[in-house]
Design a protein around this nucleic acid. Structure first.
Lengths: 156, 156
DNA sequence: ACCCAAATGTAGCCAAGGCTACGAAACCAT
DNA sequence: ATGGTTTCGTAGCCTTGGCTACATTTGGGT
């Protein structure tokens, strides 16, 4: 039963209106979507760096285990990361980080540790802090990160 | 010039090793990937709720403007959200939130505001706080959110 | 009434992440 | 050196988010 046409209250033209105001923000979200690939890249280089530190090398299977995906997914993603210049690898060999890949990994690791320590300092349990940090670290700006560090210095 | 076979230091078997330790966490990431859809859903219902509050109704074009994507993307996503029971809409009509959609929107809004207020309390500039909150809000557990609120009460 | 502009919808394309199934290469032992 | 296990690559499929181009519906004006 199709009732009303344009619902009930068109009030404002709703055309030029929502540009910001109370909360109807824009653009930032659209970008955040495509940044999914960037987040994945960060997770990968971080995991690769960790594996190299822990076991001496990063293999596809290890990454698959670490990241909780199949080796196929890892393999394909590594291809993309190689295309983007973060890693280099040859068929059936280990995966290595390039300069920029290593730099990104260092950046992510530091960021991750800061976020984790910050959450811990707030009283969040270690396990929760670790889990939340994994999601949060990709969305913390330099300014916010600085605020976290400042808080840590004041309360550490 | 393909040098070594298995790189240089296989040291540990790298098989059963990386389960957690220093940082090589697992599973959480794999899930976080598919959760992308959930984040999108949250952004949409939040935007829909805002539009309804601000302009009286939520139309595809308004959502497109708000979210910074084309109306096509919005249209298709709305179809998925409808399938998932968060919204209901008929061709060429407004978009409405279902009960669960509205509940999700309320939850997200509250979460968003808490994160923003928390960042502001830490000294982060309004603009940055808003931007970061958009990314962070989807990754904050209840425990961490509670810690944020506690901090706000102690420093507000 | 009619027409036109704006709002929606549809078709079809791309990238990316996930998966299963299966084949090929590498390694380790015997 | 030969075979079996493990690792890796490829083929092929699904979902989802984004887009452009084009068709259709609405709704407001003249």
């Amino acid at each position: 039963m199709p009732a009303v046409r344009r619902s009930t209250a068109p009030s404002q033209p709703a055309s030029s209106a929502p540009t910001r105001s109370t909360s109807a923000q824009a653009s930032s979200l659209s970008k955040a979507r495509q940044d999914n690939a960037r987040e994945i890249a960060e997770d990968y280089v971080e995991a690769i760096a960790d594996l190299i530190t822990l076991t001496g090398e990063a293999r596809v299977v290890d990454l698959a285990r670490t990241l909780g995906v199949t080796h196929v997914t890892v393999s394909r993603t590594i291809t993309r990361l190689q295309r983007q210049g973060f890693v280099r690898s040859e068929p059936y060999r280990s995966i290595f980080l390039t300069e920029s890949g290593a730099a990104l990994a260092r950046d992510c690791k530091s960021r991750h540790e800061t976020v984790t320590a910050f959450l811990r300092a707030l009283g969040v349990r270690r396990e929760t802090a670790e889990r939340d940090a994994e999601g949060i670290e990709h969305h913390v700006s330099d300014e916010t990160l600085a605020a976290f560090l400042k808080f840590l210095h004041a309360n550490g």
